[in-house]
């Protein structure tokens, strides 16, 4: 994990996570899920979600806002990762 307090071109800190997950051979088929919990419903930064709970791959940048604060989250890798929205009235 890298915390960058003054990334050029940004006015606030940025941080990068690089997760590596190695499942056992017996459980290689299990699905790895990285969870992000937000106080308010996140919004895709570009375009509308494909469905209320499943965003298009190209929309993997999303905006989390609450109380005047905003975080922009981008999933960089893996290139074909799915981002699901879970929870709220439309959640699954």
């Amino acid at each position: 994990m890298v915390w960058l307090p003054n990334l050029p071109g940004t006015s606030h800190p940025s941080f990068f996570f690089h997760d590596e997950v190695h499942k056992t051979a017996d459980r290689a088929g299990l699905t790895t899920r990285i969870l992000l919990h937000t106080a308010q419903r996140p919004e895709p930064a570009g375009g509308e979600p494909a469905s209320p709970c499943h965003w298009k791959v190209e929309d993997r940048t999303y905006r989390i806002a609450n109380g005047g604060g905003v975080a922009t989250v981008s999933t960089l890798l893996p290139p074909k990762a799915d981002v699901f929205e879970v929870g709220g009235f439309d959640g699954a």
């Binding site: 606030h12 992000l36 919990h37 937000t38 106080a39 989390i64 806002a65 609450n66 109380g67 005047g68 604060g69 905003v70 975080a71």
Partner: peptide
């Protein structure tokens, strides 16, 4: 977790 002006990424 992340906080800026309000909780953004939270322990739920």
């Amino acid at each position: 977790s992340l906080y800026y002006r309000a909780p953004l990424l939270v322990d739920s």
